[in-house]
Design a binder for these strands. Structure first.
Length: 661
RNA sequence: GCGCCCGUAGCUCAAUUGGAUAGAGCAGCGGACUUCUAAUCCGCAGGUUGCUGGUUCGAUUCCAGCCGGGCGUACCA
């Protein structure tokens, strides 16, 4: 049960009696919220002010009228009116303790499953299995999992689908690399490492030629920018009148020249570095047509070429085993793993169908089959001029497949915000195609930036591999676990095995929490120290809070099952107790907030707040040494409920708890 | 050029989608371990929410214009 929902039920008849539209009643109900400040009680209603105009009465008068009429008996003290018409509600202790008693005796902590479950497809993680996963993959994976788990706990039907990249150009690169640069001994010893090396090598060579091809364009752009800037300077000199405005324009133009110069010199540096490397420049000479040849390998794979298919069959299990190993370490699972290859056979008929069904938007241009959507500056290409299909094509096929198989109410794509144009076009096309009553949503998130604040790019060499990041997180955690265990007053209490297990849980948690605790829409600055921090608002802090609760219960040799079944009363006399109790009851609201816009940081904020309240309670309220038996039992109940709420909340975020640390 | 996103404390970020005196963490300073785990707690300090206007009872939030940054923009994903 949600506090907010209950409160809104009480206000509804009063609002309906004001003679406003049902729509305004709804809007007004949404303006009942948790209070910003404890001085204003626990909840506040802000609807009186906006209603003032419509009702032609001062907002304070409206507020007073509502406050007098609303029936809060059994829930809260009579409502107060403050300021211009804020209505403040302070919940009764009796009510809180009753609700806490319900949570104590309920597996779901008193949170009822939604009345009308929906079917959600959550498309997340989606790595390219030809390359090893790097830090850029972590957000989609971690955020996606949290969304899946939270929706599922709320009672929805959820299908987590890992739409892996297993059919694209990257496989052409691996095929090309395998055929030309393979080191058999290395492949025998560790095929995935060797494939990864081959991928990087081929990508480097292709990149070399791409950069080289761009060079004239970059030079031209620099010349043009320079010419414009110079002309502007001369014109400005001739016309002293317009000096001020001209100066500003000049700065802009000079900036553009500088940008063009920087871009050109970056490209030249890159090429020079390759040319200076004798081995690399030899390969460059020998593989002058590599960019096209890679595409040819890809096209042959798609066309059913026997050798390429055989190699693909050989590589795939290896690549999948590799990503699976990472998922196991992260504790991530999927209900479905249908990669691009799964849809391959459907693409040809699909394009033909689109052309015949929607000839006004789907047509050929420049040799490619394009979708020209109204209001879109550029078309979405569904078939290249060489006949190959693209991810837009696959994504359309995927939508159809999912609609037919699952009849979902919504599909959520947890993908980097840089693909927003793609999704805008994809969704618009899907609607034209007839899929109008499904909520297609791009759950975008910010880019991972480097320490320098520039977008994190996987430059060869200094890629931060996901595996290495996990190792680093766990080893940092191990050091801290050991250090803290060693300095325990009563001496170390953990075995080597326990330390290792705890380090694993703590390390992985720090990584996930760092990501989840941030608003997903903002860019993410990559920093080991920040991602792996273990003090402050971190996963470790929450795990520690849990372990401390567990420590109390263990030390008191409390029979938890009996405690829960006892029906003993919870008392909320001390401020710290009341604050904790109230926070515990807010869990349902926090979950609603989390899925309202699919923002797991709503849940991390809640859990952090809860752990904070517990820490304060822990400092101020002795549990095992409470003055009376009744108080001891009451506090133990609060502890147990805190532990269960933390454990449940963290599990929804994909974070494990440990009983000792 | 066009489109989308962002700019909040020294740093990294919140702010319940327009509510009351803008909050946390880190870093800094000062306190609290013979007492249930100090990976903690309590306190102090830190702000013209990029700038300028507008909309209204009320703006970090909405609108316009500037300034600064990022991303995307026809056959990669």
């Amino acid at each position: 049960m949600n506090l907010l929902a209950e409160l809104r039920r009480r206000f509804e008849p009063v609002l309906a009696g004001l003679g406003i539209s049902p729509d305004d009643v709804q809007k007004s109900l949404e303006m009942i919220r948790p209070a910003q400040d404890a001085r204003f009680g626990n909840y506040q209603a802000n609807f009186a002010m906006p209603l003032a105009k419509a009702l032609g009465k001062p907002s304070r008068e409206i507020a007073a009228e509502v406050a007098a009429k609303v029936d809060l008996r059994g829930l809260a003290a009579p409502a107060d009116v403050a300021g211009p018409g804020f209505i403040n509600v302070r919940l009764d202790n009796n009510f809180l303790t009753e609700r806490l008693a319900v949570a104590v005796s309920d597996d779901r902590l008193g949170i009822a499953p939604v009345a009308q479950p929906k079917t959600y497809i959550v498309d997340f993680s989606a790595p390219n299995v030809a390359k090893s996963m790097h830090v850029g993959h972590i957000r989609s994976t971690v955020i996606g999992q949290a969304i899946v788990e939270t929706l599922r706990f709320l009672g929805h039907r959820v299908i987590g689908d890992n739409h892996i990249g297993d059919w694209g150009t990257q496989f052409g690169m691996i095929l090309y690399g395998y055929k030309h640069f393979r080191d058999d001994a290395a492949y025998q010893a560790n095929p995935v490492v060797e494939l990864s090396r081959l991928y990087r090598l081929v990508a480097t060579l292709v990149g070399y030629f791409e950069t080289k091809a761009e060079l004239p364009e970059l030079q031209k752009r620099l010349q043009e920018a320079d010419a414009v800037a110079t002309a502007h300077k001369q014109a400005a000199a001739a016309d002293p009148q317009a000096q001020k405005k001209a100066a500003k324009e000049q700065r802009r133009l000079d900036g553009r020249v500088a940008d063009a110069r920087a871009e050109l010199s970056a490209a030249q540096t890159k090429l020079a570095a390759a040319d200076a490397d004798p081995e690399l420049s030899k390969l460059v000479r020998e593989h002058a047509t590599i960019a096209d040849d890679v595409l040819t390998e890809t096209a042959k794979l798609h066309a059913g070429d026997a050798e390429n298919r055989r190699l693909w069959q050989e590589f795939m299990p290896l690549c999948l085993a590799e990503v699976d190993r990472i998922y196991r370490r992260l504790g991530v699972t999927f209900d479905e793993t249908l990669g691009e290859s799964f849809y391959h056979e459907q693409l040809g008929p699909l394009v033909a169908e689109l052309r015949s069904q929607l000839p006004e938007v789907v047509r050929e241009s420049g040799g490619a089959v394009c979708v020209f959507l109204p209001g879109q500056a550029t078309p979405m290409i569904v078939q290249k001029k060489d006949g190959a299909y693209l991810y837009a094509t696959t994504d359309l096929a995927t939508i159809r497949y999912r609609m037919e198989r699952w009849r979902p109410d919504a599909m959520l794509y947890v993908v980097d915000h840089r693909q927003s144009l793609h999704f805008e076009q994809l969704f618009a096309m899907a609607r034209l195609w007839g899929y109008r009553d499904v909520d297609l949503r791009h759950i975008s998130f910010g880019t991972v930036l480097g320490d320098d604040g520039r977008p994190f790019k996987t430059r060869s060499g200094d890629t931060v591999g996901l595996e290495g990041l996990l190792d680093e997180a766990v080893s940092r955690a191990a050091a801290i676990v050991s250090e803290n265990d060693d300095k325990k007053p009563a001496g170390p209490e953990l075995s080597a095995d326990e330390r290792a297990r705890i380090a694993d849980a703590v390390g992985i948690a720090s990584l996930k929490y760092a990501d989840l605790s941030q608003n997903r829409t903002s860019d993410y600055v990559f920093s080991y120290d920040k991602m792996l921090a273990m003090t402050g608002n971190t996963g470790t802090y929450l795990q520690y809070a849990y372990a401390r609760v567990h420590g109390v219960v263990a030390k008191g040799r409390v029979d938890v099952a009996a405690l829960r079944a006892s029906g003993a009363a919870i008392r909320l006399d001390a401020d710290a107790e009341r604050a904790l109790g109230l926070e515990l009851l807010r869990f349902g609201d926090a979950l609603d907030d989390t899925v309202a816009d699919f923002r797991p940081n709503q849940l991390t904020s809640y859990l952090f707040e809860l752990a904070n309240r517990y820490s304060t309670f822990y400092e101020q309220c002795p549990v095992l040494k409470a003055e009376t038996e009744a108080l001891r039992t009451s506090r133990l109940l609060l502890c147990d409920l805190t532990a269960r709420t933390l454990e449940r909340g963290l599990s929804l975020l994909g974070i494990e708890v440990v009983e000792k640390m």
